[in-house]
């Protein structure tokens, strides 16, 4: 029982990361129907910004987190303006391939500039651990979980209660109609990229600190897992991405704990396939019939 609870704690902290990255995927998809494959690399850049802030500038955890989020937001918007905006009316496959290109560009540039080896992240949060009924919970795990929940609540507030959020929802339903109603579609799309990228940046810093390592290709696998999480919960739906992230994180740890670690990724992909067959719109998605 203790081992089970321990695995759930492990799964929750892993799931928090997936959820934060999945939110960016889902927001961008919701608004311009683009699967932004460069998103995992934004997460990697966030980790590097956090690394530079803490190691070279000697800043603490929270300033590093904020700076990484702001930097990633800017990078996200710039990528959108340079790479995706000119293709707004092109075929979806063109935009998708561009996204893959951007992903390679970010990885290779980071390898050239920061070097290919992994850097170790300094221990800015301490190694304090708590023992609750035999379950070991570290301070880092608590902080990751709390920061994730806070950021999600903030996001939910922005999307549901603010003017920008209302504009986002309007654009995601029908961009042309929204424009006719006076919504600045370009600005709204930029905001979406900014917010999604900022969340990925935050995830990057959290991961860097939790596992104390950053490397240029660290975004690859979490990016794909987060994408699965977003599809699982229903791509385009924000609570779906959170739910999907935690679910994938916990499934992965439980498969490792009670099955075989060799199959943990396979199980995650099988879940994706089953979801796509049984409920293509995702767990929380509604099947909307397109009118022709």
């Amino acid at each position: 029982m203790v081992q089970f609870l321990q695995q759930i704690v492990n799964g929750l902290s892993l799931g928090s990361i997936y959820a934060l990255i999945a939110l960016g995927y889902t927001m961008v998809y919701g608004i311009i129907k683009l699967i932004n494959f460069a998103h995992g690399d934004i997460y990697m850049l966030g980790a590097y910004v956090g690394f530079i802030c803490t190691v070279q500038l000697g800043l603490g955890f929270f300033p590093a987190l904020i700076i990484a989020m702001v930097t990633c937001a800017i990078i996200g918007v710039v990528i959108e303006k340079i790479a995706y905006k000119p293709l707004r009316n092109a075929t979806r496959i063109a935009a998708l391939i561009t996204a893959i290109g951007v992903s390679y560009f970010l990885e290779a540039s980071t390898q050239k500039i920061m070097g290919t080896s992994a850097h170790s992240f300094p221990d800015v949060l301490g190694t304090q651990t708590f023992n609750v009924l035999g379950v070991v919970i570290s301070m880092k795990q608590i902080i990751i979980f709390v920061v994730t929940i806070l950021l999600m609540l903030l996001l939910q507030y922005v999307v549901q209660k603010t003017k920008i959020g209302r504009a986002m929802r309007a654009v995601s339903v029908d961009a042309d109609a929204a424009q006719l109603m006076g919504v600045n579609v370009n600005a709204t799309i930029s905001y979406t990229f900014a917010i999604g990228s900022a969340l990925a940046g935050a995830a990057g810093v959290l991961v860097g600190i939790y596992y104390n390592t950053v490397s240029p290709l660290m975004g690859l696998v979490p990016g794909i897992k987060a994408f699965i999480a977003a599809v699982f919960g229903g791509i385009g739906i924000i609570p779906g991405a959170m739910f999907g992230g935690f679910f994938i994180g916990i499934v992965e740890t439980l498969v490792t704990g009670y099955g075989s670690s060799l199959y943990k990724d396979a199980v995650v992909y099988i879940i994706l396939i089953i979801i796509l067959i049984v409920k293509p719109a995702g767990l929380l998605g509604k099947n909307v019939k397109e009118k022709v």
Binding site: Q3, Q6, N10, L14, Y211, L217, M218, E252, T256
Partner: peptide, 20 residues
């Protein structure tokens, strides 16, 4: 015999299992 995938960063799940 347990396995991880290159570039993994989270090994807690497997290690918790191995520990006992």
């Amino acid at each position: 015999t347990e396995y991880y995938v290159a570039k993994d960063t989270d090994f807690n799940g497997t290690l918790t299992k191995i520990k006992d």
